[in-house]
Design a protein around this nucleic acid. Structure first.
Length: 639
RNA sequence: GCUCACAUAGCUCAGUCGGUAGAGCACUUCCUUGGUAAGGAAGAGGUCAUCGGUUCGAUUCCGAUUGUGAGCACCA
């Protein structure tokens, strides 16, 4: 028997300890203190997370990850997924396991089973999970050969697992199996907790839904069970509270409560804007119109329908015919426009352009219709009829970078003006189905990268395969009240469309050239953006966006005439103001207008009518402030 | 589009193990003129999403359709 050299373990504080026999994370932790061993979830070995009971067979930089660390939470959640899988297989034999990762707040696991899980099943599955935790089954890591694993899963009737090992795992990749107790195992990269008891009680199954095997709609439909999991009960409780609060901000709920818009069965995915909702729209539109102007854009307007041949030329028909609406007249088929760019190209083409004219910037509040799949519709965030703050810049290749940089800065200013400080910047790269050659795509993608750098963006996420069929794009994403991210702005470089639709300009050598086309939007869809605004501000829009900025209400009917006069004066200064002359007590009216999120309530009684003053109360404050009418007008007319 | 769930008054919801329905708020009328988050009384309001089946009888059970919700897929 040869004597192996001692194993050197170095700790984060710089200490180094030698072991003659490979220690485990748990044994090292126990050596330090039993308390630490109890709190330990996994260990970090040379940067990799390892199981507590996996022998450390090499010299290593070593760190103990306790339960309160973010990395530990991920392990806990992943473990919950495994416990869920075991519970389901114990209760419903014959159900196949597939995958079950951790998520932002918990975990899910996808199962293959003919009968759907019911809500009642969910409750009994959760009970069984708690039972498995109580049994405190040891979780053990084993390394298997591919053949053994395939044989095992096939014999067990787990065809999805067997398929994944064959197709999804490289032959030279280490394949690990985690046993959970005597009878249950799953293939998994790990790491895991040392036993199911360590999972604790802070988990909860939330819902069951469909998902596709390997994320492809052509594959088998699986059943996904979602759950929440946290390190302790208090965190789970806090999360549930937060979700409850977030649901109160849902734009669909607030849209109804604040009487902003409605949707109905006869027009799925379309919006009926009520006066108050449309007032918000107008405020946003006026603001964006100013942005167009400041950015050197000329506002234009194209037709709503155009001959389908134009859409065949542009390539939209090939890619999106299933998602386009068509109409027909006198034996011609027209497409209801799903985009504004071909229209803008027609306007560009209507005259002879010189290189001296470039860049040409067109903008439009362009109404578009897209026949989105029914399952995609969501309030006013994802609709079939929407309006883009769309713009197209026709320019030379050299002008791309300054144009993109200027756009980025303008976009960030717009988001800040609307109260958004945090947003994600992404760069979507060439998709599989695309126009143009790779060299052109290389140039387009690099142009966007260097423009982002020039604009001072330090980090962005690159999304391979997510670009438009005609070019790569920068995307700006905001999150809704329940954490779902929505794309708002975009900037896309397009070398294809001008050529396809015959856009040219005359260069300095009198030669015809195709310009580069930049597609850009800042708020994106007006509908979606207003939905996000409603949620972000929980319905209490800032004064300049509020549909009703002020309500004037008398205390006694003797002051009705004065209240109307105050409202008329404010209205003259373009304040969106209403009166409330109803025969109700002031408490009642204050409550109602406060719930309607009106930023300013002006109360007038006999005293104010005599003094020609108003008593002003701002939303969110109980403070009252009496001002002379003349001063109040100046104050409220400031937008 | 796929899986599952849901659809009752303007809104939020209850209810009917099959005998055509109820509350609160809102609305209308009357009383009340009240100083900063709900004053009181009376009244009116529903083909229980649509279409079909089972049944003596369907809002209730079954099926289809439409729409909505969650997730998946999609998002020019």
């Amino acid at each position: 028997m040869s004597i192996s050299p001692p194993i050197r373990i170095s700790f984060p504080d710089g200490n180094v300890k030698s072991f003659d026999v490979p220690p485990t994370g748990l044994s090292i932790a126990t050596g330090i203190s039993p308390g630490l061993a109890k709190k330990a979830v996994v260990v970090r070995v040379n940067g990799e997370l390892w199981d507590l009971n996996r022998p450390i067979d090499r010299d290593a930089a070593f760190e103990i990850i306790t339960r309160d660390k973010p990395e530990a939470l991920e392990v806990i959640r992943h473990d919950a997924a495994h416990v869920l899988a075991q519970a389901v297989q114990e209760l419903f034999p014959g159900t196949q396991i597939t995958f079950g990762p951790s998520t932002e707040h918990g975990f899910y696991y996808d199962f293959a089973r003919d009968t759907p899980f019911s809500d009642a099943d969910l409750a009994s599955i959760e009970q069984r999970m708690r039972n498995i935790v109580k049994r405190d089954l040891p979780i053990i890591r084993e390394v298997w050969s591919h053949e053994a694993a395939v044989a095992h899963f096939e014999q067990a009737g787990e065809s999805f697992k067997a398929e994944w090992i064959r197709d999804g795992i490289a032959a030279d990749e280490e394949l690990t199996i985690y046993r959970q107790g005597e009878a249950w195992l799953d293939m998994c990269l790990g790491p895991h907790l040392p036993s199911t008891g360590k999972l604790g009680t802070a988990f909860k199954l939330t819902r069951v839904s469909g998902a596709y095997w390997r994320g492809d709609a052509n594959n088998a439909q699986l059943q996904r069970i979602y759950g929440l999991a946290f390190a302790n009960d208090a965190d789970l409780e806090a999360h549930l509270k937060m979700v409850e609060e977030a649901e109160k901000r849902d734009h669909r709920k607030l849209g109804k409560q604040l009487d902003l818009y409605h949707q109905q069965e006869e027009a799925p995915g379309m919006v009926f804007w009520h006066p108050k909702g449309w007032a918000i729209w107008q405020a946003v539109e006026q603001y964006v119109r100013g942005v167009y102007k400041a950015g050197g854009y000329q506002e234009v307007r194209g037709p709503q329908i155009m001959d389908v041949n134009l859409w065949k030329k542009s390539g939209h028909w090939d890619n999106y015919q299933d998602n386009m609406f068509f109409t027909e007249s006198e034996k011609r088929t027209y497409a209801i426009k799903p985009m504004n760019c071909p229209g803008h190209v027609q306007i560009f083409n209507a005259g002879l352009r010189s290189y001296r004219d470039l860049p040409v910037r067109y903008a439009e509040f362009g109404g578009c219709h897209r026949n989105e799949p029914s399952g995609a519709l969501h309030g006013i965030m994802r609709v079939r009829a929407f309006t883009q703050d769309d713009g197209h810049i026709f320019c030379t290749e050299a002008q791309i970078e300054p144009e993109v940089t200027a756009f980025h800065q303008q976009a960030m200013q717009v988001y800040a003006d609307f109260g958004f400080t945090h947003l994600d910047v992404k760069l979507a790269l060439r998709p599989e189905k695309r126009l143009g050659d790779d060299a052109t795509w290389d140039r387009a993608e690099d142009a966007l990268r260097s423009a982002l750098r020039a604009a001072g963006v330090a980090t962005w996420t690159e999304l391979p395969g997510e670009g438009a069929f005609y070019g790569p794009k920068i995307e700006y994403h905001l999150k809704d009240s329940i954490g779902r991210a929505w794309q708002v702005g975009t900037m896309q470089v397009d070398f294809m469309m001008p050529e396809r639709l015959g856009a040219t300009y005359i260069d300095e050598h009198s030669a015809r050239q195709h310009p580069v086309m930049l597609h850009r939007a800042i708020v994106g869809s007006m509908e979606r953006f207003i939905g996000i605004l409603i949620e972000h501000h929980a319905g209490a829009l800032p004064y300049w966006l509020a549909p009703v900025q002020a309500v004037v209400t008398p205390i006694v009917s003797d002051a009705d005439a004065y209240a109307s006069e105050v409202a008329a004066e404010l209205s003259k200064r373009n304040v969106r103001v209403q009166t409330d002359l109803r025969n109700e007590k002031i408490n009642y009216k204050i409550r109602e207008h406060s719930l309607q999120k009106v930023p300013v309530i002006l109360v007038v009684g006999r005293k104010e009518a005599e003094e020609r003053s108003v008593t002003l109360r701002r939303l969110g404050s109980e403070r009252q402030e009496t001002l002379l009418l003349a001063d109040a007008i100046i104050e409220l007319a400031k937008h």
